[in-house]
């Protein structure tokens, strides 16, 4: 059997698409309330769609934490891009006390510093999975994909599988968008957003990784008997989160969206020991959500909430 070259869809996915195009059978991952909600805004489920990629993450980047044998910070200016008085977080906010420049992050100018290649590889994983899912959706003539679930599974030996799974819907409309919209909002949420005059555009992802050396001040603060903020760690997590949020906003901005609703904001911190007595901390922040645009003509949303008391069992 000839191996698949990685272009387009894998043969089995293409075959399933072909089969469902010929058949009148429609599949969907939506539950009853979600399907009813989608139908209420004239979106008809046309099939479940999936995209997947297994990626080998063998190279994480180099450059270390920027700390050289007690002589202080010796990175090129790019490493201080987020740092110093000029550094800024989202909205021009200068961080807890302005970044000190002691944290090396993937958002710096040096593409290899602060796990840059790793971050690029994770982005590629998510985006390839989403693109393949979209390819299936286009194949079904869909206008959008709702309820998308993005998952990452570690397969061992630095291999990861990125999967995007959702339900393709087709609008009862004479107009078609240039590309199907993609959202991780559920069917009812999409329906409510549409009735409120907002339409989802795309799934938006922001990722950042940063590394920081455990310097003397950090170790002292983290092991004292008294209460104290550990400013080094605080800076590490604040900077990595700020960068992930910036990336998230930038991605929504590139899609020309007007709002981005965050559905997930994760953070992972771990310790590495590159050499004897040298300890660094690495933080990875991920922000995922849906970008939306407004289509109702008035500034005021055309919603009209009713006060209802559900007689449910809760």
């Amino acid at each position: 059997m000839v191996g698949w070259d990685g272009q387009g869809l894998p043969p089995s996915a293409a075959a399933r698409l072909e089969r469902s195009r010929r058949s009148r059978l429609r599949t969907s991952l939506l539950g009853v309330p979600a399907a009813a909600a989608a139908e209420s805004v004239d979106l008809t489920p046309v099939g479940e769609v999936m995209g997947s990629i297994v990626e080998h993450l063998g190279f994480q980047g180099w450059g270390g934490c920027g700390w050289y044998g007690g002589r202080g910070w010796a990175g090129p200016a790019g490493w201080r891009q987020m740092g110093g008085p000029g550094g800024r977080g989202p909205g021009g906010f200068a961080g807890p006390a302005g970044w000190s420049g002691a944290t090396v992050s993937s958002g710096g100018r040096d593409a290899y510093a602060g796990y840059g290649p790793y971050v690029q590889a994770v982005y590629r994983g998510y985006h390839t999975a989403l693109d393949r899912m979209l390819m299936e959706a286009r194949g079904l003539g869909a206008d959008g994909v709702v309820g998308v679930r993005l998952t990452v599974e570690h397969l061992g030996q630095s291999n990861r599988e990125f999967v995007a799974l959702g339900t393709a819907v087709r609008a009862k409309s004479p107009l078609r968008p240039a590309a199907p919209f993609v959202t991780d909002l559920s069917g009812p949420d999409v329906a409510k957003a549409l009735r409120g005059g907002w339409v989802p555009v795309s799934l938006t992802i922001g990722i950042s990784v940063a590394i920081r050396h455990d310097d003397w001040a950090t170790l002292r603060q983290a092991s004292a008997w008294i209460n104290s903020e550990v400013s080094g760690y605080t800076e590490l997590v604040s900077q990595v989160r700020a960068e992930a949020r910036d990336q998230f906003a930038a991605s929504a901005q590139r899609a020309a969206a007007e709002t981005a609703l965050v559905s997930r904001m994760d953070m992972r911190v771990w310790t590495i020991e590159p050499s004897e007595g040298h300890r660094d901390h690495v933080a990875e922040a991920t922000v995922i959500g849906t970008a939306l645009v407004r289509f109702h003509p008035t500034v005021q949303a055309p919603t009209r909430a009713l006060t209802v008391l559900p007689l449910g069992s809760v």
Binding site: P177, F181, A193, V199, V201, M265, F295
Partner: peptide, 30 residues
Amino acid sequence: LGIPADAMRRLAEMRPGQATTLFTSDLSVN
């Protein structure tokens, strides 16, 4: 409010890269 035709028109008109004022939020749709 022609749902979903208006929504689809808006999506069709979108030009990636065009400047918009964007805000982010972790509120749910409700």
